[in-house]
Simulated assay, not measured.
Amino acid sequence: MAVEAPASIYDVSATSIEGNSVSFDTYKNKVLLIVNTASQCGFTPQYQGLQALHDKYADQGLVVLGFPCNQFGQQEPGNSNQIQSFCETRFGVSFPLFQKIEVNGNNAHPLYQYLTKAAPGIFGTEAIKWNFTKFLVDRTGNLVKRYPPTAKPEDIEKDVRLLL
């Protein structure tokens, strides 16, 4: 049985890819772009665009957060060390990555329980449909928009700028 979704994004904690607990209240007053990622997906090259957004806007308060997930086509089979190494060497990723999680089902991470309840997808379905679904959160923790995997990071940039 699924646990009730958190009332606020700031009530969530997650484990960094390095194994440290990270409370989301550390991201108060930041604009967040939260993405479920995978290393062997057709959308994997979006890591480059996500890193570009991070590089361009981090000083203004944007934080990109990557959450590896293996629920879609087994496209994230690696362990944390393999995922981190791949992201750093292939795409120069320096934004925060977290340990692999589930985004759908009874074992969905509380963050994704919150996000999918706050911003249902097309036709009102809460489930994440594929890797690289993106959620944009404003500086006060309000979920602003959900983007499909096909939305490229550069297409989201205008929305990010409005929140900074």
Rank of each mutant, 00 (worst) to 15 (best):
P148V: 06
I128Y: 00
S13I: 02
Q60G: 00
E76I: 12
V64H: 10
G66L: 05
T150Y: 06
W130Q: 03
A119G: 03
G49L: 08
S13Y: 04
Y147Q: 04
Y27I: 09
A5M: 04
L50V: 13
P110G: 07
A2R: 12
K129C: 03
P148I: 09
E157F: 09
Q40W: 06
Q82V: 13
A108S: 12
L164Q: 03
P6I: 03
H109T: 06
G105A: 10
D11E: 14
P77I: 13
V93H: 10
K158F: 10
P153S: 06
K30R: 15
I9D: 05
Y57M: 14
G42N: 15
F95H: 06
K152C: 10
A7R: 14
I83W: 07
K28T: 09
F123I: 03
F86C: 11
K100P: 05
V144G: 05
S94E: 12
L164S: 02
K129D: 05
V63N: 10
V63D: 08
L53R: 13
F91M: 03
S94D: 07
N81E: 13
D59H: 08
R146D: 00
M1L: 12
N29S: 13
A58Y: 13
T150D: 09
A151P: 02
F132W: 02
N81D: 12
S23G: 10
G92E: 05
I83G: 06
P77V: 13
I101Q: 02
G141F: 02
L97I: 10
L53I: 11
Q60I: 15
I9R: 01
T125N: 15
Y147A: 01
T15D: 08
Y57K: 11
C41Y: 08
K117L: 00
T89L: 11
A151G: 01
C69I: 02
Q74T: 11
L50T: 09
S23K: 14
S39V: 07
E76A: 12
A14Q: 06
T37L: 06
D25S: 14
A38T: 13
K100G: 11
F123Y: 10
G92F: 01
S80F: 09
K158G: 09
G105L: 09
F67L: 14
N131T: 00
R161A: 15
S13N: 10
L164C: 04
Q113D: 02
G121E: 03
G49M: 06
T44M: 11
V3Y: 04
F95Q: 07
F72H: 14
K56M: 05
Q46T: 10
D59A: 14
I17Q: 00
E88T: 11
E154M: 08
